[in-house]
Amino acid sequence: MIEAIRDAMDVCMERDDDVVVFGEDVGFFGGVFRCTAGLQKKYGPSRCFDTPISEAGIVGAAIGMAAYGLRPCVEIQFADYVYPAYDQIVSEAARIRYRSNGQFTASMVVRMPTGGGIFGGQTHSQSPEALFTHVSGLKTVVPSNPFDAKGLLIAAIEDDDPVIFLEPKRLYNGPFDGYHDRPVKPWSQSDLGEVPDGHFTVPLGQAKIVREGTAVTMLSYGTMVHVSLAAAEAAGVDAEIIDLRTLVPLDLDAVRRSVLKTGRCIVVHEATLTSGFGAELTALVQEECFFHLEAPVRRVAGWDTPYPHAQEWDYFPGPDRIGRALQEVLEV
């Protein structure tokens, strides 16, 4: 998935001189996850460069550049470190179009690795997507495989609004189904690891049905798409699994169609439960599908604690917890 993300930036930089890439350790070294490796060499240090360790600075500078007319695609080293930039994102990037009545805009992407599963403790594991979906003016994207990562990132860079692009770091090197004690499978052994060369997009705002089924709809994104698939399989449930891919704008039609068909729904995310994006999804399903629901909508999410180090796999909403929720929803 790392190659797909790099390739997306490469394609965009090649096609459009206005695309610039920067962040901490992003230039010469090519990023701590190597997502920008080679870009500085290819496009020179004024289009791909290292920044001081200042997330507020990175995003603030990107806003200034975007307002000028560039298309910055910046990296925050871990989503856990985005908070110093939160003011710039929320108060500035998200509102510039609105408050200037379109005189100034912030066409930019803020990329960041998200999620746990790597024993990263509280500062390398968080899933802060709901902090962005709650903000009007931002788009929020979470890919679950290399193909989508490339297509979505190109679409995000070409989008005229600020896009928060959350990359599940546990998926960088291969799909992860939540069975942490099994060997890691690389993307090269998966169909989804096949990424076409050159330019293509996966439009923002389109969900994807990754498994068709009739018993229950499972809504998820990022790492949890794979975990949901594994959980449904383990539980022997004919679930319809939807990879939302973009949280805002949301593909509500896809959600509605599926829940109207199955009459049951669970939402799975790794982020903490309370006020998580699952709350939004649950409310929407209730509003849109109430008279077709045969059971209460259930959420499976990270516990409402900081992300622990030692107890990582007790914290992570793995296949067992999802399996239990499936059972509960199906028993009604």
Binding site: G120, G121, Q122, T123, H124, P306, P308, H309, A310, Q311
Partner: peptide, 16 residues
């Protein structure tokens, strides 16, 4: 080691 005697109860990354 984040072990049973860890004064921080396994909550923190090593050396924190």
């Amino acid at each position: 080691y984040s072990n049973e005697r860890d004064p921080l109860k396994g909550r923190q990354l090593p050396i924190m």
